[in-house]
């Protein structure tokens, strides 16, 4: 196992985050390997959102170390994360409803010619190519406004947007939260394909059924601490549920946490 194992693409070492008196995360370790889908589960307020927002540079960790390809890095702004190749697909604020698919996929990173005039053709072409590469076939025109898309289509666009930038780590926040059965399946398949393409995928989810369908590994947060890190094929829903609700806390101070 340890023979010439690549370092994880992203490694968190003892990261913590407070908001005033609230300890949202306490000394969490987490590794993300290339080609691996890791599920991050936990009850409401367990610190899942805080963790991904810190990795994304929205509010940096207070303590601990973040390593990328084995090198220590500092991520203090969303741009830092993007420059490293870390992309986050947020649950509800992933897309601008009033813009079309191409505009959304390139938002903030538009290709342009002289004087900031957009290079529409080339953006449209690569958007279509990305969709094809990810086998997203349900979408019609890439020039339609996102407001008119179904929930599954929206998630597909958000995911495609995340992987278009030669990204190496993709973090998905509850990608199936508001979806029906068929669309959930479609999005989970897409998540699996990301792993198969060699990306490191972190899937945040409430739904253990979804988690067991795609994840290789399951990390459990409880009250801001990591209480379990299990291989999906060597555990059971029962065990994961126990960890979520009653996992043993290393740091008793966690009980005073009120991360709502």
């Amino acid at each position: 196992m340890a023979v010439a194992a690549d370092p994880p693409i992203l490694a968190l070492r003892g990261v913590s985050k407070r908001f005033g008196a609230v300890r949202a995360l306490t000394r969490v370790d987490l590794d993300l390997q290339a080609g691996e889908v890791v599920a991050l589960v936990g009850d409401n307020g367990a610190g899942k959102s805080t963790l991904i927002k810190s990795v994304a540079g929205i509010h940096p960790f207070d303590e601990g170390e973040v390593r990328f390809d084995g090198e220590p890095v500092r991520i203090t702004h969303p741009k830092d994360a993007a420059d490293l190749g870390i992309e986050v697909v947020y649950q509800d604020l992933a897309l601008a409803d009033n813009l079309d698919v191409v505009q959304n996929m390139y938002l903030g990173r538009e290709r342009h010619k002289a004087l900031g005039v957009l290079d529409e053709e080339s953006m449209e072409r690569s958007a279509r190519e990305t969709m094809t590469a990810l086998a997203v076939t349900t979408l019609g025109s890439v020039r339609q406004v996102v407001a008119g898309l179904s929930g599954g289509q929206r998630q597909s666009v958000a995911v495609a947007k995340a992987v278009m930038w030669n990204s190496r780590v993709v973090i998905l926040d509850e990608p199936t939260a508001a979806l029906g059965v068929a669309q959930t399946h479609q999005v989970l398949q897409l998540v699996r394909r990301l792993g198969d393409r060699g990306l490191a995928v972190l899937l945040v989810s409430h739904n253990l059924h979804d988690v067991f369908e795609v994840a290789d590994r399951i990390a459990v947060l409880r009250l801001g601490q990591k209480v379990a890190d299990l291989r999906a094929d060597a555990t059971s829903q029962q065990e994961v549920v126990e960890a979520i609700t009653a996992g043993e806390l290393a740091d008793a101070a966690g009980t005073e946490v009120d991360a709502s």
Binding site: I58, L93, L95, A96, D97, N98, G108, L118
Partner: peptide
């Protein structure tokens, strides 16, 4: 309608959170 700034303007108005998350 044909510049980065215009797209960022519309994104800021229609979905400020999404715009911010996208680095606008």
């Amino acid at each position: 309608f044909h510049t980065r700034f215009g797209t960022h303007l519309l994104a800021t108005g229609g979905a400020p959170e999404a715009a911010r998350a996208a680095g606008v």
